[in-house]
Amino acid sequence: MKISKIVELLGAEVVCGEDRLEEEVHSACGCDMMSDVLAFVKDQAVLLTGLCNLQVVRTAVMMDMKCIVFVRNKKPTDDILELARESDIVILTSPKRMYTACGVLYTNGLQGGTVAHS
Protein backbone atom coordinates (compact mmCIF):
# COMPACT_ATOMS: atom_id res chain seq x y z
CA MET A 1 0.00 0.00 0.00
CA LYS A 2 1.27 3.47 -0.80
CA ILE A 3 1.56 5.93 2.09
CA SER A 4 -0.71 8.24 0.10
CA LYS A 5 -3.42 5.56 0.35
CA ILE A 6 -3.04 5.53 4.15
CA VAL A 7 -3.48 9.30 4.15
CA GLU A 8 -6.70 8.87 2.19
CA LEU A 9 -8.09 5.96 4.24
CA LEU A 10 -7.41 7.61 7.58
CA GLY A 11 -8.44 11.12 6.58
CA ALA A 12 -4.97 12.03 7.74
CA GLU A 13 -2.97 15.21 7.59
CA VAL A 14 0.64 14.93 6.37
CA VAL A 15 2.75 16.90 8.80
CA CYS A 16 6.17 15.73 7.65
CA GLY A 17 7.55 13.85 4.63
CA GLU A 18 5.21 15.12 1.88
CA ASP A 19 7.80 14.02 -0.68
CA ARG A 20 7.69 10.34 0.31
CA LEU A 21 3.98 9.57 0.01
CA GLU A 22 4.50 7.35 -3.02
CA GLU A 23 6.63 4.88 -1.06
CA GLU A 24 5.20 1.40 -0.57
CA VAL A 25 4.65 -0.15 2.85
CA HIS A 26 3.64 -3.76 3.42
CA SER A 27 2.69 -4.05 7.08
CA ALA A 28 1.86 -2.01 10.16
CA CYS A 29 1.65 -2.21 13.92
CA GLY A 30 -0.53 -0.34 16.40
CA CYS A 31 1.04 0.10 19.82
CA ASP A 32 1.50 2.51 22.72
CA MET A 33 4.16 0.51 24.55
CA MET A 34 7.47 1.28 22.89
CA SER A 35 9.22 -1.72 24.45
CA ASP A 36 6.66 -3.97 22.75
CA VAL A 37 7.46 -2.34 19.42
CA LEU A 38 11.15 -2.91 20.09
CA ALA A 39 10.52 -6.54 21.09
CA PHE A 40 8.14 -7.78 18.42
CA VAL A 41 8.32 -5.62 15.32
CA LYS A 42 10.21 -7.21 12.47
CA ASP A 43 9.65 -5.40 9.22
CA GLN A 44 6.53 -3.35 9.87
CA ALA A 45 6.98 -0.05 8.14
CA VAL A 46 4.09 1.83 9.77
CA LEU A 47 3.59 2.56 13.46
CA LEU A 48 0.16 3.73 14.64
CA THR A 49 0.19 5.13 18.14
CA GLY A 50 -1.73 7.28 20.58
CA LEU A 51 1.49 8.36 22.21
CA CYS A 52 3.16 11.52 20.99
CA ASN A 53 6.72 12.11 22.14
CA LEU A 54 10.32 11.97 20.90
CA GLN A 55 10.74 8.37 22.03
CA VAL A 56 8.09 7.28 19.54
CA VAL A 57 10.20 8.67 16.70
CA ARG A 58 13.39 7.20 18.17
CA THR A 59 11.66 3.83 18.45
CA ALA A 60 10.63 4.07 14.79
CA VAL A 61 14.23 4.94 13.89
CA MET A 62 15.50 1.88 15.78
CA MET A 63 13.08 -0.37 13.88
CA ASP A 64 13.74 1.27 10.48
CA MET A 65 10.08 2.25 10.09
CA LYS A 66 8.95 4.57 7.31
CA CYS A 67 5.81 6.18 8.70
CA ILE A 68 4.24 7.11 12.05
CA VAL A 69 0.51 7.76 12.38
CA PHE A 70 -0.54 9.72 15.46
CA VAL A 71 -4.17 8.78 16.08
CA ARG A 72 -6.87 10.91 17.73
CA ASN A 73 -5.34 14.04 16.22
CA LYS A 74 -2.34 14.17 18.53
CA LYS A 75 -0.26 17.12 17.33
CA PRO A 76 3.50 16.50 17.26
CA THR A 77 5.71 19.29 18.54
CA ASP A 78 8.48 20.91 16.48
CA ASP A 79 11.25 18.83 18.04
CA ILE A 80 9.37 15.66 17.07
CA LEU A 81 9.00 16.88 13.49
CA GLU A 82 12.64 17.91 13.27
CA LEU A 83 13.83 14.46 14.35
CA ALA A 84 11.39 12.79 11.94
CA ARG A 85 12.66 14.94 9.08
CA GLU A 86 16.31 14.15 9.88
CA SER A 87 15.40 10.46 10.04
CA ASP A 88 13.35 10.36 6.79
CA ILE A 89 10.18 9.32 8.59
CA VAL A 90 6.75 10.39 7.31
CA ILE A 91 4.45 11.73 10.04
CA LEU A 92 0.67 11.62 9.70
CA THR A 93 -2.04 12.68 12.12
CA SER A 94 -5.49 11.13 11.91
CA PRO A 95 -8.70 12.04 13.73
CA LYS A 96 -9.55 8.32 13.98
CA ARG A 97 -9.09 6.34 17.18
CA MET A 98 -6.53 3.54 17.36
CA TYR A 99 -8.94 0.63 16.97
CA THR A 100 -10.71 2.19 14.01
CA ALA A 101 -7.54 3.35 12.28
CA CYS A 102 -5.96 -0.11 12.52
CA GLY A 103 -9.21 -1.76 11.38
CA VAL A 104 -9.55 0.45 8.34
CA LEU A 105 -5.99 -0.22 7.20
CA TYR A 106 -6.28 -3.94 7.86
CA THR A 107 -9.51 -4.40 5.97
CA ASN A 108 -7.97 -2.52 3.05
CA GLY A 109 -5.15 -5.01 2.84
CA LEU A 110 -2.35 -3.66 5.04
CA GLN A 111 -1.24 -6.72 7.00
CA GLY A 112 0.04 -7.12 10.53
CA GLY A 113 3.24 -8.71 9.21
CA THR A 114 5.46 -11.20 10.98
CA VAL A 115 6.64 -11.08 14.56
CA ALA A 116 10.29 -11.13 15.57
CA HIS A 117 11.62 -13.60 18.16
CA SER A 118 8.60 -15.93 18.05
Binding site: S35, A39, L51, Q55, V56
Partner: peptide, 15 residues
Protein backbone atom coordinates in the same frame (compact mmCIF):
# COMPACT_ATOMS: atom_id res chain seq x y z
CA UNK B 1 2.40 6.91 30.14
CA UNK B 2 5.52 7.78 28.12
CA UNK B 3 5.58 4.33 26.51
CA UNK B 4 8.17 2.62 28.70
CA UNK B 5 8.08 0.80 32.04
CA UNK B 6 6.47 -2.43 30.83
CA UNK B 7 9.32 -4.50 32.22
CA UNK B 8 10.52 -5.51 28.78
CA UNK B 9 13.75 -3.52 28.60
CA UNK B 10 16.28 -5.91 30.12
CA UNK B 11 14.70 -8.95 28.36
CA UNK B 12 14.87 -7.02 25.08
CA UNK B 13 18.52 -6.19 25.67
CA UNK B 14 19.27 -9.87 26.25
CA UNK B 15 17.26 -10.92 23.19
Amino acid sequence: SLGFGAGMGLPNMKR
